[in-house]
Nucleic acid binder design. Structure first.
Length: 663
RNA sequence: GCGCCCGUAGCUCAGUUGGAUAGAGCGCUUGCCUCCGGAGCAAGAGGUCGCAGGUUCGAAUCCUGCCGGGCGCACCA
C-alpha cells in the first residue's frame, strides 16, 4: 500500500501548490510511471494541462511547480522532463525497505455488503467451457472484492423449473419410458459416464426429436405445467434431476476452488410468491400497465418507449405477465433483483445443501423453517450479476424495473457484469464432430450448440489439462531429481498433485487473460500450452523464487530478508535499474486490483502479473543470489526476490491459482 | 430498421480513461544449461492502429460519417 500513500501525498501537495501559485483548482492529478526508467519513477502532465488556461509554456509552469516544492517521504527528487512533465524519483532503498513490510497489505475494509451472482448453469446437463468463463470471472471478482474490503456473498442461481430441465424430464419419461425410480437408480449408478454427461446427450437427443417431430412440443408444455403444479411424479423427477446435476456442477467447480454461499432456487421464488409482491410494487409505481388492446392485449407490460436507452426500438415494451396470467422470466428476475437489494419485503428459508470442507453451501427453501446456523442473506448495497452479454437487453429491462420501483440509487447498484461468449475455432469444432459449411470454416470462430450436444465440457478440458500437466511434471522430475530422491512412486504422487494445480492455473488464467467483451475462440492446442502468456508461467516463476529460499534454508545460509535485518543504506548502494524496476512494479499490485474491480476488467491483473513475472525471470538470470559472495549485494538481491515472492503468492491467491511445491 | 460489441505485427491479444519512441505471447531467425530448475533468458525481423474527416499543445484512445464481422431486439429462459 506504500505506493498509494505516496500518490495521495503527491496529489495533495501538487493540488495545493497549483492553487497557491496559479489560483487554479485541479480535481484530479494524473500520476503514472514514465516510459523510461531514467526519466524517474512517477510523472504527471499537470503542467501541460495548465498551459492552456494560463497561456504559458508548459515547461515554465512545471519548473515553477518544482522549485522549492516540499517532497513527501520516500520521494527523493523532482525534475522537469520532456514537453513539460513533472517527474519524481523515489528513494530506492528506503522505499524497498518500507514496501517489503507492507507487501499485500490490504486497504482499510469498506464493509460494503456486496452480492455477486455467477455460474447460474441450467441444471440439466454438464457444464461447458462457456460456463467456466462465467464462474472464473465471478469467483475472481469475489476474491478481489473481498481483498479490497467488501463483505461479499456469492450466489449461484438455480433455474430448476425452466424449459431446459423440463426437456430432460420429457426425454426420460417419453423417449426412454423411465419412471422416477429408474432415474433415481441411474443417478445412483450412472455407469461409465457421470449423470451430467448422460443428461448432456439425453438433452440433445430431445432437441433433435423436437426438430423432427414438432408435435412433441406438446409434451414440453404439459411437463412444464405439471412441474409448476407440483405434487406429482413429473415434478418430483424434475427436482431430483436438478439436484443431482447441481451436485455435479458444484463438484466440477470445486476442482477450480470455486464455491458458493447460497443457491437460490427459482422454484422457491415461485412458491414464496416473490412475483406477487414485486407485481404490487410495479403497479404502485406505475411501471407496468395492463394493455387493453393491440397485439399485447391482456398482458401486463413495462413501458419502455420513454426511456432513453430503449428509444428507437421497434417494440420497446416488455411483457412481464402474459395474457394467460403467467409471469415471464424477466418479471421473476425483477422480483429476485429487488430481493437481493433488500427492497422486496419477503424472503426465503434456508437449509444446508452441501459442504466444501468447512464451508457450507446453503440453498433456499420455502417450508417455513430456517436452519438457525444460516447467516443473513440478501439485502446488499451492491449487486453484481455475471451474465453473458447476449442478455444485455434483458438486464437493462430488469434495471429499469428496479429504477421505477426502488429508485435511481438501487438501479445504479445493480451491475451487469457482461462478458462475451466462448466459441470454438473451426479446427476445434471439427474435432468435436461439428459439420461446418464452407462459410463457417472460414470464420475465426463458430458457436457451440447445447441443443446439438456440441461443445467442450468443463470436466473434459480439466482432465486433459491435468493429464498434460502431470506428464510435464513427471518429465521434469525425471530430468532433475537427484538419485534416490524419490521412493515408492512418490514422484508419481507429486506429478498428480502438481498436475492438478497447473491445470487450474492454466484454465483460470486462460479465462481471465482476454478482455471481457472479446469473444474467446477456444482452441485445444492453445489452451493446452503452458508457456509464455499463461498461468503456468506465473506458477513457474513463483516456484522458482520459492526454491531459492528453500535451498538457502537447507544450506543454512541466512538470506537476511527478515524485515529487521533490512537496512536502507545497504540497499541504496548498488541498487541497479533491473532490481528497482522489479520492486517498483510489485508495488503497483493494489492499484491493478482496484482498477480491475472498478472496471470489471480482470484481465488487468493477469496482464500486470505477466509483466511482473517477466521482470523477475530476467532478474533471476542476471543476478544469482545463492552464489553471490558479497554479503550486502546478496542481501539486496534476496530482498528484491522476496518482495516478488510475497507479491506473487498473494496475487495468485486472488486469482485462485495455486502455487505448486515444484514444477 | 434500431441497439450493443469487435476491428492494433503473419496469428491471439495489451495499450493505465487524451500524454513522452504503439507493447506482449505464439510463430520465424540467432545465441544461452560445468553457472539458485531451460515450463526459462538475451537479441533480431515484423505496424497505413479498418477507412475518411473533425476536436487540440498532443489522438490507437474523444466526436461525425463510412467499410467489414459478431450478438441482441419473443406472450423462450
Amino acid at each position: 500500500m506504500i505506493l498509494e500513500e505516496i500518490h495521495a501525498r503527491l496529489t495533495e501537495t501538487l493540488q495545493s501548490r497549483v492553487l497557491a501559485l496559479f489560483g487554479q483548482a485541479v480535481d484530479r492529478i494524473v500520476l503514472q510511471a514514465p516510459p523510461k526508467l531514467n526519466m524517474g519513477d512517477l510523472a504527471t502532465p499537470v503542467a501541460l494541462e495548465l498551459a492552456k488556461a494560463l497561456k504559458r509554456k508548459p515547461r515554465e509552469i512545471a519548473q515553477q511547480l518544482a522549485d522549492g516544492m516540499t517532497l513527501p517521504l520516500l520521494v527523493a527528487s523532482v525534475s522537469v522532463e520532456g514537453a513539460g512533465y513533472l517527474n519524481f524519483r523515489l528513494d530506492r532503498g528506503a522505499f524497498t525497505a518500507a514496501h517489503l513490510q507492507s507487501v499485500m497489505e490490504p486497504p482499510a475494509p469498506s464493509g460494503t455488503r456486496v452480492i455477486v451472482e455467477h455460474t447460474n448453469i441450467n441444471p440439466n446437463k454438464a457444464a461447458h467451457i462457456g460456463h467456466l468463463r462465467n464462474s472464473v470471472l465471478g469467483d475472481t471478482y469475489v476474491r478481489c472484492a473481498k481483498w479490497l474490503g467488501d463483505r461479499v456473498e456469492t450466489q449461484n442461481y438455480i433455474d430448476d423449473t425452466g424449459v431446459q430441465v423440463a426437456d430432460v424430464v420429457v426425454a426420460f419419461e417419453k423417449l426412454e419410458q423411465k419412471t422416477l425410480a429408474d432415474v433415481e437408480a441411474l443417478i445412483a449408478n450412472p455407469g461409465d459416464e457421470s449423470f451430467d454427461y448422460v443428461c448432456w446427450n439425453v438433452y440433445s437427443q430431445m432437441a433433435q426429436h423436437y426438430a423432427a417431430n414438432p408435435d412433441a412440443l406438446q409434451w414440453r408444455r404439459e411437463t412444464l405445467h405439471r412441474i409448476e403444479e407440483g405434487g406429482n411424479e413429473t415434478a418430483a423427477m424434475a427436482a431430483t434431476i436438478a439436484r443431482a446435476i447441481v451436485h455435479r456442477h458444484l463438484k466440477t467447480m470445486q476442482r477450480l476452488d470455486i464455491t458458493y454461499d447460497l443457491l437460490p432456487k427459482e422454484s422457491d421464488i415461485i412458491a414464496l410468491h416473490f412475483w406477487d409482491r414485486a407485481f404490487e410494487l410495479l403497479k404502485q409505481s406505475g411501471a407496468v400497465v395492463l394493455e387493453a388492446e393491440g397485439k399485447h392485449a391482456g398482458c401486463w407490460v413495462m413501458k419502455l418507449d420513454e426511456a432513453e436507452e430503449f428509444a428507437g426500438m421497434n417494440e420497446p415494451d416488455k411483457i412481464l405477465v402474459r395474457s394467460n396470467g403467467t409471469v415471464t422470466y424477466t418479471g421473476k428476475d425483477i422480483a429476485y433483483q429487488l430481493w437481493k437489494l433488500g427492497r422486496l419485503d419477503r424472503t426465503f428459508d434456508y437449509r444446508e445443501f452441501a459442504r466444501a470442507g468447512e464451508h457450507i453451501v446453503w440453498e433456499t427453501t420455502h417450508d417455513g423453517t430456517t436452519d438457525p446456523r444460516a447467516p443473513k442473506f440478501g439485502g446488499a448495497s451492491r449487486v453484481v450479476n455475471v451474465i453473458d452479454s447476449r442478455q444485455s437487453y434483458l438486464q437493462k429491462v430488469v434495471k429499469e424495473g428496479v429504477r421505477q420501483v426502488a429508485g435511481e440509487a438501487a438501479a445504479e447498484a445493480s451491475i451487469h457484469f457482461a462478458y462475451e461468449m466462448v466459441a470454438l475455432t473451426p479446427s476445434t469444432a471439427k474435432a468435436l464432430g461439428m459439420e461446418l459449411s464452407e462459410e463457417d470454416a472460414s470464420r475465426t470462430y463458430v458457436e457451440m450448440s447445447g441443443r446439438k450436444g456440441l461443445g467442450v465440457k468443463a470436466d473434459d478440458l480439466l482432465n486433459w489439462l491435468q493429464f498434460n500437466a502431470s506428464e510435464a511434471v513427471r518429465n521434469s522430475l525425471a530430468k532433475r531429481a537427484e538419485p534416490g530422491e524419490f521412493k515408492d512412486g512418490e514422484d508419481h504422487a507429486i506429478a498428480e498433485r502438481v498436475g492438478k494445480q497447473v491445470a487450474i492455473g492454466a484454465l483460470r488464467y486462460f479465462m481471465l487473460r482476454f478482455g471481457r467483451n472479446k469473444v474467446i475462440a477456444f482452441d485445444w492446442e492453445e489452451a493446452l500450452r503452458f508457456e509464455g502468456d499463461s498461468g503456468p508461467y506465473l506458477q513457474y516463476s513463483t516456484v522458482r523464487v520459492q526454491n531459492i529460499f528453500a535451498k538457502m534454508r537447507k544450506e543454512g545460509i541466512d538470506p537476511r530478508i527478515d524485515d529487521r535485518a533490512v537496512d536502507d543504506l545497504t540497499l541504496n548502494q548498488g541498487f541497479t535499474d533491473d532490481m528497482w524496476e522489479l520492486v517498483r512494479l510489485s508495488a503497483e499490485l493494489p492499484a491493478a486490483i482496484r482498477r480491475a474491480v472498478d472496471s470489471l476488467e480482470l484481465s488487468i491483473v493477469t496482464q500486470y502479473l505477466l509483466e511482473l513475472a517477466q521482470k523477475f525471470n530476467s532478474f533471476y538470470h542476471k543476478y544469482p543470489i545463492r552464489n553471490e559472495k558479497d554479503a550486502a549485494e546478496r542481501q539486496r538481491r534476496a530482498v528484491c526476490a522476496e518482495v516478488f515472492r510475497r507479491t506473487m503468492v498473494g496475487a495468485l491467491e486472488l486469482l485462485g491459482i495455486p502455487v505448486p511445491e515444484r514444477m
